[in-house]
Design a protein around this nucleic acid. Sequence first.
DNA 1: TACGGAATTC
DNA 2: GAATTCCGTA
Length: 677
Amino acid sequence: MKTPGDAGFAFPDWAYKPESSPGSRQIQLWHFILELLRKEEYHDVIAWQGDYGEFVIKDPDEVARLWGARKCKPQMNYDKLSRALRYYYNKRILHKTKGKRFTYKFNFNKLVLVNYPFIDMGSAGAGVPQSAPPVPTGPHFRFPPSTPSDMQVSEVLRSPSSEELRSPGMFSGRRIARGSVSDCSDGTSVNSEIEDGNGGVAEERVTERVAERGGGGGGGFRGAVHPRLSHEAMFRMYGGPGGHRGHRVSEVGGHRVHPEPLSPFTVSPLPGPGGPGLLAPPLSPALSMTPGSHLAYTPSPTLSPMPGSIFSFNPEDMQRYLQAHTQSVYNYHLSPRAFFHYPNIIVPQPQRPDKGMPGPQGCDRGPAERPSVLNSHHSSLPPPHAHPIHHHLGEEQHHSPFKFKLQPPPLGRKQRDSQGRQSSLSSSSTSGLGSSLSFGSDLSSASGSGLVSNSSSTGSLNSAGLPKIKVEPISDIESEEEVEVTDISDEEADERDEEFGVFPSHYHKHRHHHHHHRNHYPHSQKHQQPNGTDAALHPDEDLEEEVFKAPAPPPFFLSPTSSSGDSRRGTTVVKSEPVEPADMQLASGGLPQPNSQCIPLKLRFKRRWDQDQHMEEAEDKKVRGEERGRERNGMAEESGSGSGSGEAESPPPLAHHRVSAELHRATAQLSLENKEC
DNA sequence: TACGGAATTC
DNA sequence: GAATTCCGTA
């Protein structure tokens, strides 16, 4: 049967926009999946299930058949289809729900990123991009109504009206609807329609800002359209042919509840050209439990109702989302890594149920109960501008029941394969290190300790000269992913991390590496196959790297205040530095600097790490050498001089001395560099 | 069942 | 680039 949740899931337009999806060219599998998911008629074949964004393919063969039909690939079968799905793992669009057959989970966050290239990550620090595009990823996220009328309804996400609005031009009718089983036409042409609407993004941003400041009145819609965005239809949802949403909405009726509890996206009524609405997959139970978080959340009125607009989100939304997420993390005993670490956002103290929570799975649709909670919560929500912008996450971490254990960066495959203990640090190690280090902002203390512990624990990094360092984007995302948390463990944690991760992952590969190193990760052992593919940056990585390198912070996390504007990167840097300034500076010490450009914090850490390792080794060798020398020669000798490691020349004490000196030097150097930055 | 490499296709 | 196809492995 269908529950409200089942009924129609709306997806943001962006999901169909050409860029993100091959929209114009050919439908992508994930689009197709979404398409099926939103259609009631296919619920016997594939449906949202349990967790947020999670769906189960009830009839693999049928899904494959449908897919094959759509792609005109009669030979399609589940095996092939699943291969395609697996490719999404790396892209982080999707992941497998372990232990559940044919069950996968969308990582909408990722999708958002993918689809929001425009998100300005560029204005680092300072300016917040004007908009922040936010990627509404959380379950509680709502896409703003596209039309003014919708807007007014701040309260209900989807008032019928909105629905109506949407329906008209909806996208759904166009491509998607036709789709699933369609003949072999690929819905290429369709996009034009979608694209028209656009423009909204820019507006959205503006609006958002306005809203933030103004507190949301319903006003503020402005319409500046960002050029870049023009083609993006972003959050228009495609309304389903039937208007599933509508009824859902009604169910929810006067509540501010999500009309579609099950969906990852709430429906936002956007009438716009694109008619957007989002359908969402089921919320995860965890989330639902979160008081107030998503469910109650109502799109801020100010959000733009622009035509075509897209969704806008405001800090509150973000906050709620994060809160929900956090709660979820706690509820599920997820890895701390799963926490979002964004400045400016205060995450409520999670209430950790002593006992288990309702299993995520369960069922699909059971939204009905959340309303009350939401409502109540909602009322308590702070005014838009009231967002606190603090780095609570960090604090949370402290309070968190989780124990962090930072581990040394894993060797890269290459290294492993080549046994290379040679001179280069593998990229993976870099990433690992970087992550833990970069974590600083998030887990400030943790990161700091991480360094220490790491350095002490791993003596094996090679001592060779310059490590090959892969410069990675500074994103805490990575760090989140890569920090090892021993206490949690289950894949769910991983999944959740990813699920909520908004990160692009430029670390797909890295991620895998991680898994390899995680004992508890189910697949960890199997993937140890060699392959040199990751020696170089993965394509995705490159891509993502760029994204992260972009100057501006993700709008998403922008807070109303200027400071909030930091992007992940900015945040990371800012926060991290305080943690261990000296270390940071030292990070690059001794290592050759390509040039005096600013060195990413992460890199610095990495270097620092390397250096530490280096030194330790050197000292070790020295000590050993000396001991040996003494043993052999008695005690004379200028021991050490020739022992292999050309570096260590001085006796232990001296070594320390030297180290200190080097560190100082390095520090000075770095300081200079930093100034330049 | 699921994963992922490799080659190939569109 | 996004699958599709094949296939070995777990």
